[in-house]
């Protein structure tokens, strides 16, 4: 029910991002739409549907090895999901890499289920493959709701990821000379009517980091942080970041590390 409504709504709401060339009327419609939507939503965030779907995928036997993801180590030991998202990204010995929740799931799909994840990585946003990954990330993040963010930068590779993420945040290029910092580098500014967090501050980093994965009302879609970042890179006029690449993990590490001490409020709900 809720989901049918969401999809219907998406078709009449314009996505009002930086790149969309919003006119005033569209902006008003968006706001009215969200109010109507909130009203109709009293019985819950549609993200719950994706959490449930993600939990099913987590527990279902799949892949050449016909195994579930239930023994996946998200950093707190095999099979421990509760609280794991709040400690990610982190360094993993077995891969010798710093990984976020989404790239770690790819590792578990590969090693535990024997799945060739290349097609999951290359699949377009909104494809069934990416929807599965988003649902799983939503489930994992929900199991850290109300948990304090505690991301370590103690390991040299963790520290390096954090510093690389910071450097990436300020890296400007493309036809518009944009960097993350162009839009998220000042306190209290907005694009059109959309308020932008000042990400280098603990408060701004937390407002972004602790509320994704989130259900996007305007799009009628569930987005993980990987998708959030990919869409900001699109608005930045950059090429597309590869799913699970170090660029995306570095930026997540920068945001997560900067928001240490804040409380996870996932899955979120957004415009």
């Amino acid at each position: 029910m809720t989901r049918r409504f969401a999809v219907g709504l998406a078709t009449c709401l314009a996505v009002a991002g930086f790149a969309a060339g919003t006119a005033r009327a569209e902006g008003d419609k968006t706001i009215e739409g969200i109010e109507a939507y909130r009203e109709a939503l009293k019985d819950g965030n549609p993200a719950e549907l994706f959490e449930a779907q993600g939990e099913d995928l987590w527990k279902k036997k799949a892949g050449p090895k016909n195994a579930s993801l239930e023994t996946c180590d998200l950093g707190m030991g095999p099979g421990v999901v509760a609280g794991a998202y709040a400690h990610l990204p982190r360094y993993f010995k077995d891969t010798d890499k710093v990984q976020d929740a989404e790239s770690r799931v790819l590792t578990c799909m590969t090693t535990i289920q024997g799945i060739d994840v290349a097609k999951y990585v290359s699949a377009r946003w909104g494809s069934p493959e990416k929807d599965e990954l988003n649902a799983i990330a939503t489930f994992i993040s929900g199991m850290s709701k109300d948990v304090k963010v505690e991301v370590s930068t103690a390991h040299p590779k963790e520290r390096q990821m954090f510093e690389l993420g910071k450097r990436m945040f300020y890296y400007g290029g493309g036809p518009h000379d944009f960097s993350c910092s162009t839009c998220h580098g000042q306190e209290g500014v907005r694009i059109r009517l959309q308020e932008l967090p000042y990400i280098p501050s603990p408060k701004g980093a937390a407002s972004g980091w602790t509320s994704w994965p989130a259900y996007r009302v305007s799009a009628g879609q569930m987005w993980g942080m990987q998708w959030r970042l990919a869409d900001c890179f699109r608005q930045q006029r950059f090429p597309e970041p590869i799913y699970g690449s170090d660029v995306t993990i570095a930026l997540s590490m920068f945001m997560a590390g900067t928001s240490n001490g804040a409380t996870m409020n996932t899955p979120g709900i957004k415009r």
């Binding site: 040299p156 390096q160 510093e163 450097r167 950059f238 590869i242 690449s245 660029v247």
Partner: peptide
């Protein structure tokens, strides 16, 4: 930039991080 974010590491990250 802090430890580990030297030019070589940064360029390697950029090069492997995007697709057209």
């Amino acid at each position: 930039w802090g430890p580990g974010a030297d030019d070589a590491a940064f360029q390697a990250m950029l090069k492997s991080g995007f697709r057209e």
